[in-house]
Design a binder for these strands. Structure first.
Lengths: 353, 353
DNA sequence: CTCACTGCCGCAAACGTTTACGAAGGGTTA
DNA sequence: TAACCCTTCGTAAACGTTTGCGGCAGTGAG
């Protein structure tokens, strides 16, 4: 089903057919209707290769993920929720969204380079940003519009959205210190994922605000997986003196953490208070329910898509320097109690300083 | 960076450049090396639109998912593991893999129709097959090669791979009846997902093999989600007489099921024995560990990719009628005990007939 | 009646690539 | 030396689409 076949079938020229299908001016309304009807009944859809070759644009947005990383998992269909929301607003604007999976054995930078050069997408969304991320420089010099889902230390002005890791960690420490905790451990990612630094900073700020001296023995690294959480729980259970509370930067690790604590004869939430970075459907059914933070993922996806569209339409000149630290709301759960053996201690007003 | 620019830079014609880059015969080895080197240093990559327009093929495989469905979640990065493995073998054969996310508000059939007509992919992998799936007829008549991840009742010969739902359900019932269970409930999906029928058939076969009369009150439907598992657990806990064992067709629902049982004052594995369809990283850390079945997902992905390649290369004439029921291995776990109040009963040889 | 203008449409040139075909040049054989 | 083959490369035509340009009616004004 060619545009030529369609034009022959209607006894008009392919130019007119094209103009009719693309809502260009200068085509008789009745002709346009004839064309649209015929296209519908014959099932004609413009060939993408021909179109994008001529237009120099593909009307396609690429969402890059790394399928090897355990980070692609979050206990919920995290990426799919975001992608679904993006897809909704992009479709309205006439764009298609495809997910480009970078193979685990491939270098993400080379993968991106090839994706750019092949010209199958007009813009890109990159995820799983590193503290130092060469992809950003690559994208900047290539000129392909892009939005980062996650910050990076790499300099340059580009639009990004990132969770409020710092705020979450700070508020977590505050919530724990308020009920008396002073030995608060934190599980940071064991990779160079950008969020690790932010989470740590928030944790330290929280300690300082609560007047708790920093103890580097309480800053641990953890693989962002169920097994990583299990290992983290083992370590926590074995520490002397044991921390009375923990911050877990990965929701998915929480199930493993609970399991390790129970294996050690400890009760999550009672012997060790827990705050988890981000809510997910799994942990909602753990007993006790972990305190955690929640983000509006669909709205986040819409915001990402909006950034992409602004970049492509070039309407706002400052679109490339927009950035959002995504707000998160606190869900108390049942996993925060005063430290064990501290029941008699005053709950508030006791923090010196 | 054009092919013309590259040719000018080398003072040769674009035809030769193209032949050199595509490993065609009839180009001097030294010339070929010059071309490849220049392409490497200048970062030239053939424009995909031009190439696929001329070739009539895109060298791209589309993996279709539905981002709205909770089925895209399985407690692990299920799809990503499969996609990653596929990507590995497809890359070797010179194909790219992209994921095409069907928006939750869109009709999957129309989405597929557009994807086919636009011609951005040479072959498709469809997932989440329904018992009656119009996409299969659509693909068949469109002539686009495709592989289904999941069976369907829709007639026609096409290659597919599917988990051994029937065998798993049958073996689950066998494992439970062996230790004395006779009131065994099953949680089927509440959608028209194709696997529901197979799981049910295996369940019924298992009952018959064990000489247990069928009781339709024990056949329940469940949303394949954590919340669905919670609801299922609530129902089980409230039943009179209560089932002594359950089969759960969705791994992701297990966390919720455990939570509901605990809420009702019941001990998972003791008061109600449990077998889960497919293992995932989450349930591995539940206490007690659920008995479940395991599939080699990377190998499955490789098999899917192999089918796609065979279809495209057209080497084996029977490629379109190949199909695999994917084998699964049993992981006993700690969630199967004899029925409560049945400790004295003989463990085997007691099933009448 | 002439002229200008407008609305509508056809023509043909691109977009970047691949590939069939032919030409040029050197080497071999008769 | 002529005839021929082989290797290597240049030329140009496609692939399907969009779009600038020009043409052809029809209409209104002068």
């Amino acid at each position: 089903m060619d545009i030529r076949a369609l034009a022959n079938h209607l006894n008009i020229s392919i130019g007119t057919v094209s103009r009719a299908l693309n809502n260009r001016v200068g085509v008789n309304p009745s002709t346009r209707k004839r064309v649209l009807d015929a296209a519908m009944t014959l099932g004609y859809v413009a060939n993408q290769s021909g179109r994008s070759l001529r237009r120099g644009a593909t009307n396609t947005i690429g969402f890059v993920i790394e399928t090897g990383e355990p980070a692609t998992t979050s206990g919920d269909n995290f990426f799919f929720i975001v992608v679904d929301a993006m897809n909704g607003v992009l479709a309205e604007k006439g764009y298609d969204l495809v997910i480009l999976p970078c193979h685990s054995a491939d270098d993400p930078v080379e993968f991106l380079q090839r994706a750019i050069a092949r010209g199958t997408v007009d813009a890109l969304v990159i995820t799983a940003t590193r503290q130092q991320d060469r992809r950003i420089a690559l994208l900047a010099e290539s000129g392909v519009p892009f939005v980062a889902f996650g910050r990076s230390e790499t300099p340059g002005t580009y639009p990004w959205i990132d969770f409020d890791f710092e705020g979450v960690a700070r508020r977590s420490v505050a919530a724990l210190s308020e009920v008396g905790h002073r030995r608060i451990a934190v599980a940071l990612p064991n990779t160079d994922a950008a969020f690790g630094a932010h989470f740590k900073r928030g944790y330290l700020e929280g300690l300082e605000a609560a007047g708790i001296p920093r103890d580097d023995l309480l800053v641990l690294c953890m693989e962002s997986s169920e097994a990583g959480g299990f290992e983290f729980g083992r370590k926590i259970a074995a520490m002397q003196p044991r921390p009375t509370a923990v911050l877990i930067s990965s929701g998915i690790a929480t199930v493993g953490f609970y399991g390790a604590l129970r294996n050690a004869g400890l009760h999550p939430g009672h012997d060790v208070s827990i705050v988890v970075f981000r809510e997910n459907p799994q942990i909602r059914f753990l007993q006790p329910t972990p305190a955690c933070f929640q983000a509006d993922l669909p709205e986040l996806g819409q915001a990402l898509a909006g950034m992409v569209v602004d970049l492509l339409r070039g309407e706002s000149a400052t679109a490339h320097e927009r950035s959002i630290i995504w707000p998160m709301t606190f869900l108390p759960g049942n996993s925060i109690l005063p430290p064990p053996g501290d029941e008699a201690a005053p709950v508030s007003g006791a923090t010196p300083h």
